[in-house]
């Protein structure tokens, strides 16, 4: 009966431990080493303020990375998220200019993202276009629409309310000193960081505990097997792309809100950061493998690298080179793990 005693553990937990733990551990270690190195290099790096800044900066890549992870697990890719982010922000900005209140305007922006994603899913499943080509098309289409609608000019003066999502924070403690500038005791947890945590938890729940999540893994693992098992493969894929688009829309609103300006040129190449985050976190572009916690670690590795290198005065060009090597290294480590 010893055989069956093992069954007491929930199967998925155990599955993750055996298959993903090595990779996740090495990624987590990398993150710790990075933080350590940067802390030694600059005392200001390891501070509450800078920690919150990293959290804020990572939230956009993190949100995109979550959607990207879902898509990558199905065996696909979404190259359009950077452009969709810009289009969604543009729609929100134009709606506010047209007199729509901020909250519904942001909702419109997210819906625009979801619509772009649904279109991607439709093209991929019904027209049988490969995900790379379909989302490359959407990358151009969404960017083009955003630039056309705005004439490539930023939309500013959107009001203070528009800036709350990106700049506000929870538990902000301010001491009134009587002077012009009140003393900030604790800067508070930025709303974008809270949003990222909530979305990450929901996505992890979806992937691990819901039928749709199981079908996302099955579709990427063996599409034909999933179809023969009665999984509605097309519907599962459309769902993943729609969610990726919606999250790109959400990320767009966070980003533009932080700038309190809509920039139709924002988000160029963000899709590559999102893909890098997912891949560093252990997702396989072959499909069937990946998880949210890994992608979060990946997003933070990129965020910490950017922030730390910035504070060390390293140029943005060198940063690109470093992140490029990290991506290759992460995939190489993954391959070594699989060969064992």
């Amino acid at each position: 009966m010893a055989v069956f005693d093992r069954s007491a553990a929930p199967p998925l937990m155990t599955l993750k431990l055996t298959a993903g733990s090595f990779h996740k551990l090495s990624a987590l270690l990398t993150l710790a080493v990075l933080i350590l190195v940067f802390s030694f290099g600059n005392a200001a790096f390891f501070s509450v303020n800078n920690g919150l800044t990293v959290l804020l900066q990572t939230s956009v890549i993190g949100l995109l990375g979550i959607g990207m992870t879902l898509v990558i697990i199905t065996g696909g890719i979404d190259l359009s998220v950077g452009s969709v982010l810009a289009l969604s922000g543009t729609i929100t900005g134009l709606s506010i200019k047209a007199g729509v209140p901020v909250a519904p305007a942001m909702m419109l922006g997210v819906l625009t993202g979801a619509a772009c994603g649904a279109f991607n899913g439709f093209v991929i499943t019904k027209m049988r276009i490969t995900p790379f080509v379909a989302t490359l098309g959407m990358m151009l289409i969404a960017r083009g629409i955003a630039l056309q609608l705005t004439g490539a000019a930023p939309i500013s003066r959107l009001g203070e309310t528009f800036g709350i999502l990106g700049n506000g924070s929870l538990f902000r403690i301010v001491e009134d000193t009587g002077g012009i500038f009140p003393k900030v005791v604790f800067p508070g947890i930025p709303y974008p960081a809270i949003l990222l945590v909530v979305v990450a938890l929901l996505a992890a729940y979806l992937l691990n505990r819901r039928q749709t999540g199981r079908h996302i893994y099955a579709t990427g693992s063996n599409e034909e097997a999933a179809r023969l098992s009665g999984v509605l493969v097309d519907r599962t894929k459309i769902f993943a792309y729609t969610l990726s688009g919606a999250l790109a829309g959400l990320a767009g609103n966070v980003l533009m809100s932080r700038l309190v300006t809509v920039q139709p040129n924002e988000g160029v190449m963000y899709e590559l950061d999102a893909i890098a985050a997912a891949v560093i976190g252990g997702a396989s572009l072959m499909g069937g493998v990946g998880n949210i916690s890994g992608t979060m670690i990946g997003a933070f590795i990129i965020g910490v690298l950017r922030n730390g290198l910035n504070m060390a005065g390293v140029s943005a060009f060198i940063q690109q080179i470093v992140i490029g090597f990290i991506v290759i290294l992460a995939v190489y480590v993954d391959q070594i793990r699989n060969r064992r």
């Binding site: 199967p11 599955l15 199981r214 893994y217 098992s229 009665g230």
Partner: peptide, 13 residues
């Protein structure tokens, strides 16, 4: 589905 375990495959769909 190769990446899933036996119960997940048995009950797939």
């Amino acid at each position: 589905a190769d990446h899933l375990n036996a119960p997940s495959n048995l009950f797939l769909g």
